[in-house]
Amino acid sequence: MNAILKNPLALAGLIIIAIISFMAVFAPLIAPFDPDAINVKSILLAPSSSHWMGTDGLGRDVYSRMLFGARISLLVGIVAVGIATIIGIVLGALAGFYRGWADTVIMRLVDVMLSIPTFFLILAVIAFLTPSIWNIMIVIGLTSWMGVTRLVRAEFLSLRNREFVLASQTLGAQDSRLIFKQLLPNSLTPIIVSSVLGVASAVLVESGLSFLGLGVQAPQASWGNILTDGKEYIEFAWWLSLFPGLAILITVMGYNLLGEGLRDALDPRTSNNK
């Protein structure tokens, strides 16, 4: 934690994430309007004191939709990464702990998944399963666990032969106990780093899917589909694309800065040893 506080970029990332998360959680309290309230008389109004970020093609308040969209976009990112991390930990632990054929099978599976163009895979599956927020989270999760698996496996392989692990094993500790009490806690830091970075990618993937019409579906607001709504009027109704675009940019930046800052701080090799 101290290390983050010392790294201004990581600190900035943390603050960004905190603010955005706060806005997402308290969206119903902060939002000045109902995000779905249509007003045919106030279509495409430019930002003003009553509509901070203007209104969209149905007269809905963009600021309120952005706040509720933050919930969806962050939810997609976090749940997808959660799924990927759980799968990654389980498979990585199995491969790294038991080695042998389990390792071979799992690592081949990792190779297979790594060689398929992931975005193609996501695109195909979501199109076939119909794009709903749950499908999007699950599919992004199911296609992005390989990195975590490799990380966990590598950590386990190197930790397994450490003295403290060998010692508890000789003392007759059960496998599960070893995995959960000894190995996993010791490999937590790289997992956290990769999860934080994963959220950033997932938010971007959702916006890309929205552009292709396969993201979170209207009328539910996500940053991706608000941005896509505005893309045809990029210079006329600039507020429709500028605000969601910036929101995605800043949030993804925030997660990246925090992730890289954490990596720098936790990785003894790259940390500044003065």
């Binding site: 916006s207 890309g208 941005l227 990029i234 675009g245 940019l249 930046m253 890289e260």
Partner: peptide, 15 residues
């Protein structure tokens, strides 16, 4: 440099 390259990564490309 870090901020610059992250902006490049984080900006929605179609926008």
């Amino acid at each position: 440099i870090t901020i610059f390259v992250f902006i490049g990564f984080a900006i929605p490309s179609f926008w």
